[in-house]
Design a protein around this nucleic acid. Structure first.
Lengths: 221, 221
DNA sequence: CACCTTTTGTTGTAAATGCAACAGACTTGT
DNA sequence: ACAAGTCTGTTGCATTTACAACAAAAGGTG
């Protein structure tokens, strides 16, 4: 396998937390890991497909997004290195994917066989059970993050949405200055507002001394 | 225990799916089940608390909601009979609750000890492992529903939000006519719009022949 | 029935938003 | 260095929304 080069990433993921390098390599073959390489802009999956594997991002960045009939785009979620995505579609009656998954940069994904992940196997994988628990924790965390995003979206004005989102980012980075993984258009799609109106509001907030920014770098004051 | 009267509900829950009545009763004591009775309007939990149990609703209806500094209310989610809530807070590093949980009607909740739920015990609970898997499936489903709600919230206009929500309800009930579990104010809080503006829009849509409604009953045309 | 409370619908106005169009800054590739 | 393309900020305008205040309808209680 050519997955060894990602071992450094894998051992830091939530999924394999508490599991040693050697065991991870063993589990990768037990879970029938397959590598998927993607160029920026490639679709990893499209809405309507059925997932039979659990994908894990080991390089790059992905967007979970949806385009409606009129071409309006919503970015539901941003997936970073080490994160799973599509874990919620392992359940047998979960139906097809509701959203597209697109590579926001050149990316590498490792796919694990869905059935083998949830079915604790009888052979040597001593740590399989731990993986199942980690998986549960990861779905739980995504759950909490989705609720947090709902918190942003529930804000009525563009300004409130921005403050809500930037506050969260600041907390996440434990610093008043931080970089966000989205450009203006993407941030607008993420918060479900008009880009120009948002740009306008950002500048107003800067002029009022609430924050400063430069490209993707922000600082709250 | 006085939990026998809820056995009919419990055996239909996702959590205990595939598990017989006798086993359920056994597990309830193994999981240190405790009953919690609530009057309409009571707070089950408040944002900031730490959960040490997994609550399961067996009677009534709950709202997961949040009031901001200015008194604006957002209803994040509606919990019906048989559903878990707060499952995402079992994980050890999950921090405090972000939202309030309030009884929308007189309700009864059964609390299961969080540690005992995820730690498959050594004694007689043969079905414990199955419960862990069911738990995972249930969090997954909630996850997918949250994404669906994000889909409603991402709509730009009140009308689009209404159509998005009502379409989902129609699909869920597999019928063009159905009842929703929210009154006007609650629906507005759920979709994060102004009640009067929403009321207005609903009437316009009715006048245009898109739908009819009477109190909580809707029919799409 | 009369009274009170809750829920729902209606209207007007100020404010915020979406949209379109454009200009300047910055990138990228040749 | 140039051209083409992308990203960001700016402006004006029509539409939509939030907010407040009120009217009408429905429900509950003595």
């Amino acid at each position: 396998m050519k997955l060894k080069k990602y071992l450094n990433v894998l051992k830091r993921t939530k999924l394999f937390s508490g599991i040693g390098e050697d065991e991870i390599l063993g589990m990768l073959s037990c879970l029938q890991a397959k590598k998927l390489e993607l160029k920026k802009g490639d679709y990893v999956y499209r809405a309507g497909e059925h997932l039979s594997c659990v994908p894990l991002l080991v390089e790059g960045r992905l967007h979970i997004q949806k385009d409606d009939f009129w071409g309006n785009r919503s970015i539901i979620n941003v997936i970073g290195v080490g994160e799973l995505f599509g874990e919620s579609y392992i359940a047998p009656d979960s139906g097809p994917l509701l959203n597209d998954v697109v590579a926001a940069e050149d990316s590498v994904v490792i796919c694990l066989d869905a059935n083998r992940v949830i079915t604790t196997c009888s052979n040597a994988c001593r740590f399989h059970q731990m993986v199942v628990q980690n998986l549960f924790y990861e779905v739980s965390e995504r759950n909490r993050r989705l609720v947090q995003k709902l918190g942003h979206m529930a804000q009525r004005t563009t300004r409130e949405k921005l403050i809500s989102y930037l506050s969260e980012q600041s907390q996440k980075h434990k610093s008043a200055s931080f970089e966000i993984p989205l450009n203006r258009q993407q941030l607008a799609d993420f918060l479900s507002v008009d880009r120009s109106a948002m740009s306008n509001e950002l500048c107003k907030m800067r002029d009022e001394g609430l924050l400063t920014f430069n490209k993707n770098s922000f600082e709250l004051l």
